[in-house]
Design a protein around this nucleic acid. Structure first.
Length: 603
RNA sequence: GGAACGGUGGCCGAGAGGCUAGGCACUGGAUUGUCGAUCCAGCCGACGCGAGUUCGAGUCUCGUCCGUUCCGCCA
């Protein structure tokens, strides 16, 4: 046990990441954590760490015997203060791996401000030797000391700072909306908060401030934004957490083009923070085209490898999987993998596994190696197989991967395969950024399980003006099947295959809103029950308006290439939505339950 | 709701039925130039939990818990 020193009035003069050759000769005070201690007897080195970096501190017994003796007591993660002189290292002793490696601090004095237990895992482990995430999440405060997280969280802060500056420059007003609101059906499951003052009633945490921001438009606030925390009680993923943050934006008299320009300007500014130059205006793809060409509504455009329609080469085919797909208005499509003729049986099996996850029956393949080989050879014959290869534009040494079936399955499986292949074949250029707008999303999505249409975005999304007549026919004329064709003024901003923002122009007219509710099978009473206050508000002079929300973590994922949302937030939850550090969710005591009028029923 | 993979000492990690490697960390000592220091010595565990199969189980089977990833879900 070390005897601790008082910090007293001592103040830091520099951070542990800032000292350079030109600081030589200065007397400095550094404070931080012991990253490592190297003991050479009369000479002891300490790497002192703070959020900015590492500085080597030297304790020389001849130079400062007392400090030297004291330095022998420190251990990893002890907190110390050091006063000493910055000295230039001799050429042979410089450390090019450290930004501060040209200098070191010759310690005169050391204060041991706090000791530390031996950490349960090593903070300096190589990226592939990191302790299990379970352990690191439990001791999140230790994991966060690592430069990786220090860097990510500071980048996050500078991104949010840049957003504030930009939105302010653009004349937007930041407005806070409530966290305790009311549960709305449809959409994600709500996190729910019981009410003490109203027995049997519950608040819900917002999935997004959607209705409030539209109310802000009706309220004449004109240009609203907020860095908003959102909550969704759905299963987690590498890119999904139960609570996350989004830049929420809405403005009045909005056109889609204005939204595009606003967000393009924003993303250009934000990406500049990491030295990336996005080209604006962004490329645009309609939802239909994105799905057709890339099998995804958030295509990664850093590489090509578009889906190829093989139907023209299959006219009159009797091969059952293909014939039945084409008959049932499905598709047969393929992906050409340049140089893919080298694929082994095992690799093809693995790729098939990927496609099967998305419902594909089988993954057919054609390899144009020195000799033709194909899983379709027996069924189709050499000539038909070559016709497919030609149709797809495959050349010598390429492979063609083929999926047949329902359009949605073909798109999903080939879309996923396309991403997987790009990773495996290293087709993704480093430091490339490919932003685009995906536009004209469908208004409605048909759910087979209950045979009705649901709003794809949300029920306040405006249809395209030119689709309004069809929409009316579909709803009032009873031609329900047309609903699937109605397009919305909805859009997503996608960067490198990551959906970083999504929004729409909203409905401001009561008659159109009525049509949408009817299309969704909501009676007037039901709609009133659920959104009554909002429908009322819409009738008091609602300006045309629209907006968008950009996920902060998603944007950072695109910005950094980090593929896990947990690495971009300070205190994330596990896949089962638990916080291992604070052990949440937890039980509450019977008194609290009673006050909340809640009875727990054992299952 | 479903699937896959994983859970071995403080951490990483080998070990595919019979004796459980190694590395790091940690402790003590040595050591004037290291920066993944080095050298010497020491310390640490019945392998997530439960049941089963077996003469015998980290090693096989089943269940369960936890973690990760994916499908569903996420208007």
């Amino acid at each position: 046990m070390a005897v601790l020193d008082h910090l007293g009035e001592l103040e830091r003069t520099h951070s542990c990441g800032g000292l350079r050759a030109e600081d030589a000769g200065k007397t400095v005070v550094l404070m931080g954590w012991i990253a490592v201690r190297r003991d050479f007897g009369p000479l002891t080195f300490v790497d002192l760490r703070d959020r900015d970096g590492l500085t080597q501190v030297v304790f020389d017994v001849e130079d400062a015997p007392e400090a030297h003796a004291r330095a022998k007591e420190v251990r990893g993660e002890y907190v110390i203060a050091v006063r000493g002189e910055v000295v230039l290292r001799e050429a042979a002793q410089r450390n090019p791996k450290l930004s501060t490696g040209d200098v070191e601090v010759q310690a005169r004095e050391i204060l041991i401000l706090n000791e530390a237990r031996t950490p349960p895992f090593q903070l300096d482990a190589a990226p592939d030797k990191l302790a299990a995430e379970e352990v690191r999440l439990k001791y999140r405060y230790l994991d966060l000391r690592r430069p990786f997280f220090q860097k990510n969280l500071r980048l996050r802060a500078s991104v949010v700072g840049e957003i504030h500056r930009y939105m302010d420059e653009q004349g937007f007003t930041e407005i806070e909306t409530p966290i305790l609101i009311k549960s709305t059906p449809e959409g994600a499951r709500d996190y729910v908060v019981p009410s003490r003052l109203h027995a049997g009633r519950f608040y819900a945490l917002p999935q997004s401030p959607q209705i409030f921001k539209q109310i802000c438009m009706i309220a004449g606030l004109d240009k609203y934004y907020q860095i908003a925390r959102c909550f969704r009680d759905e299963d987690l993923r590498a890119d999904r957490q139960p609570e996350f943050t989004q830049l929420d934006v809405e403005f009045s008299f909005a056109t889609r083009e204005q939204v595009y320009r606003l967000i393009e300007g924003l993303l250009v500014r934000v990406f500049r923070l990491v030295g990336a130059e996005l080209k604006a205006p962004f490329q645009r793809l309609s939802y239909a085209e994105a799905l057709r060409r890339f099998g995804s509504d958030k295509p990664d455009l850093r590489f090509g490898m578009e889906l190829q329609d093989l139907a023209p080469a299959l006219e009159g085919t009797t091969f059952a999987p293909f014939a039945s797909a084409l008959e049932k208005s499905g598709e047969v499509k393929g992906l050409v993998v340049k140089g893919g003729a080298h694929f082994s049986r095992k690799q093809l099996d693995e790729l098939q596994e990927v496609s099967k996850r998305y419902g594909a029956g089988a993954l057919a393949w054609i390899k144009l190696g020195d000799e033709l080989s194909s899983s379709l050879l027996k069924a189709l014959g050499e000539e038909a197989v070559m016709r497919l290869a030609r149709q797809a534009g495959a050349e010598k040494n390429d492979a063609l991967l083929v999926v047949a079936g329902k359009s949605s399955v073909v798109a999903a499986s080939l879309g996923a395969l396309r991403n997987e292949l790009a990773r495996r074949e290293k087709l993704i250029p480093a430091n490339a950024f490919a932003p685009l707008w995906v536009t004209e999303f469908p208004m409605f999505e048909y759910h087979e399980d209950d045979g009705r249409f649901y709003a794809m975005h949300h029920p306040f999304t405006s249809p395209l003006d030119e689709d309004l007549p069809t929409f009316e026919r579909a709803v009032e004329g009873g031609e329900t099947h047309l609903l699937g064709q109605i397009r919305a003024k909805a859009y997503d901003a996608v960067v490198n295959g990551i959906e970083v923002a999504g929004g729409s122009i909203r409905i401001h007219r009561r008659d159109v809103q009525r049509l949408v509710f009817k299309a969704l099978g909501l009676t007037e009473e039901k709609a009133r029950e659920r959104f009554g206050f909002f429908l009322d508000a819409l009738e008091y002079g609602t300006p045309p308006h629209g907006g968008i929300a950009a996920g902060i973590e998603r944007t950072l994922m695109a910005l950094t290439g980090i593929d896990n949302i947990r690495d971009l937030m300070a205190f994330p939850k596990t896949a089962s939505a638990a916080d291992l550090m604070i052990d949440a969710p937890g039980q509450i005591d019977p008194h609290q339950l009673e006050e909340l009028h809640i009875l727990i029923v054992e299952e």
